[in-house]
Amino acid sequence: MASRIVTFNLNGRDVEVMVKPLTTLQTVLREHLRLTATKSGCRQGGCGSCTVLVNGEPVLSCLLPVEDVAGQTVVTLEGITPVEGLHPIQQAFFDNYAIQCGYCSPGMIMVIKALLDRNPNPTRQEVMDAIAGNVCRCTGYESILRAAEDAARRLQTV
């Protein structure tokens, strides 16, 4: 099938990509646009490492044809990282030792961003529910839960 042009808003800027039908958002981000913060773990929705925000909601970019985000707003980890320093959630991850190999971190941070945007003061249970689809094989999750709670406090005092 012929390629077609898809336009969407990525990290605050309109982008236009030419893709074959059913090309995933993950492939467009990583291979066409070279934005590699969005990870490629299992490529079938089992690990959460490719999570991005589509209209503010966490979505597995490996399962989403890019045509489905035409005209919509996509935010990746690059989009929330300031030019200088770190986003408060990133800083909380850093300060709470919530990053070891780092492969799950971008997905975890985007899921927690979506959670804190709609629920600025979540309980531990709500944080666990939010990150339940994201696999971490290093930390045992404890430091990530700590980081999410710490990030909530930081964002409330900003």
Binding site: G41, C42, Q44, G46, V127, I131, A132, Y141, L145
Partner: peptide
């Protein structure tokens, strides 16, 4: 893959 390989998650901590 990760969808079939059973792992504990944060709820099992």
């Amino acid at each position: 893959n990760f969808s079939e390989y059973i792992l504990p998650g944060p709820h099992e901590l």
